[in-house]
Amino acid sequence: MINKTVANVSDALKGVEDGMTFMLGGFGLCGIPENAIDELVRLGIKDITCISNNAGVDDFGLGLLLQKRQIKKMISSYVGENDEFERQMLSGELEVELTPQGTLAEKCRAAQAGFPAFYTPAGYGTQVAEGKETREFDGKMYVLEPAFKADFAFVKAWKGDEAGNLIFKGTARNFNPCMCGAATITVAEVEELLPAGSLDPNQIHIPGIFVQRIFQGKNYEKRIEQRTVRMRQ
């Protein structure tokens, strides 16, 4: 067993620098690497590029890094419901590369799986395809999209073991598995870190080979963005 465990979040983030590109898992506030984000805020590193489906909300998630002007560029699919993001984007303070959600996921997966690029029909004939190579297959048009390149991937899982194997919960899975192994160094934070052998190998979502560092996360807030409920009859 190759042990991937590090003691805490500051050891897990050793080597992060100004100007780097990071992948961050999560959909809205669901399944975001809360501990890694807090540490990036604390370290105060600047001019970073973040690949993340959303940018949190004004006062949580990646919104915290936006507030401190630590982010130079966001690569995301959706920025609605985040006023500060929209304001910085419209004023030109923040560079934003809006990417269709499936393309965003696949650009991560391609990096993980060793594909330099792939063709997708998403965005053909729109602003997203401007300046990109297009090609016809069986009478349908596709756009060539390159894989992402990133320095660190920060992901959050439900359970993990010392070997770096990960299991996700519910829709907190989202982009997290796609980002594992898609950057030079993948850092996984987990709600429950267990000894090797504790997890059933049949149930592993992401094998430890895709993870360089794993640590026991703390104080998960798991904020709910839209609390919707129904009445009991």
Partner: peptide, 16 residues
């Protein structure tokens, strides 16, 4: 139902 919301189970509209 109220009280049974799970932050880890949402839809694409970020609703529980």
């Amino acid at each position: 139902f109220e009280g049974e919301e799970d932050a880890d189970v949402i839809n694409a509209g970020k609703q529980t």
